[in-house]
């Protein structure tokens, strides 16, 4: 197998490219930081510069985008907040401003969450929005019961699985995010998931609390 050099993908400004062709995006910052933290190799990159780049992608609504100046998007917010959480830098987040933006993603009618203002609710945002709200301690600002109902309404009761909204066909992607969302909502019978790594809490604890 070819060796993959994650640290080598860090650019001078602290950002990360997805591959040698140089597409830059905070998604790649998250992926690099997440992998290197699990491998206990964060010292292989310049964490301060990586954090500075993520902070430069912070917007005036408190959210984060793909690159500096890019519009806030819940998926991108997860990546940036997650990377800041893992590196102990959540003090760069305006928790009240971002928390309000995120909690307003909940659709009053269906209880589902959308990813940007004036967009339709979608099960995958149960993960992106909830995990971010948990990491900044503002998850009590949404109505959990309504969201549980929305996710359960997206189940295909005949064939199993979860879809993006109650009318669509199910897929693996939305099934994963639906179940992960239920875990973040403390739904009975679902094991706890870590909001920064999207892995079981006991796995992350075992890795990080062992010297």
């Amino acid at each position: 197998m070819q060796k993959l050099d994650i640290a080598g993908l860090q650019n001078k400004d602290g950002s990360f490219s997805g591959d040698i062709w140089g597409e830059v995006d905070t998604r790649f910052s998250y992926i690099a930081i997440c992998c290197l933290s699990i491998l206990k190799c964060l010292d292989k990159i310049n964490v301060k510069k990586a954090v500075d780049y993520i902070v430069s992608c912070k917007n005036l609504d408190g959210g984060f985008g793909c690159t500096p100046g890019a519009e806030s998007h819940a998926g991108q917010i997860f990546c940036c907040v997650g990377a800041l959480a893992i590196t102990g830098n959540l003090h760069h987040v305006d928790k009240d401003l971002l928390g309000w933006w995120l909690c307003e993603r909940q659709d009053y009618e269906s209880g589902g969450l959308n990813g940007r203002p004036e967009k339709l609710p979608d099960v995958c945002y149960s993960w992106w929005v909830l995990s971010s709200l948990i990491m900044i301690d503002r998850v009590h600002w949404i109505e959990k019961g309504k969201l549980v109902k929305f996710i359960l309404d997206c189940q295909d009761m005949d064939n199993g699985g979860i879809s993006d909204n109650p009318k669509d066909v199910v897929d693996i992607f939305h099934t994963y995010f639906g179940v992960a969302g239920l875990s973040l909502l403390e739904y009975p019978g679902v094991k706890p998931i870590d909001p920064a790594y999207a892995l079981p809490v006991h796995v992350i604890n075992r890795i990080l609390f062992t010297k």
């Binding site: 933290s37 964060l42 959480a85 893992i86 590196t87 102990g88 959540l90 948990i134 990491m135 900044i136 301690d137 998850v139 009590h140 875990s183 973040l184 403390e186 706890p192 870590d194 909001p195 920064a196 809490v201 992350i204 990080l208 609390f209």
Partner: peptide, 18 residues
Amino acid sequence: KHSVDTTRYLCSSPLSNS
């Protein structure tokens, strides 16, 4: 009491690589 800890990453600990 809860399985979700909303201050897990706001606390200085090995989780936040302190």
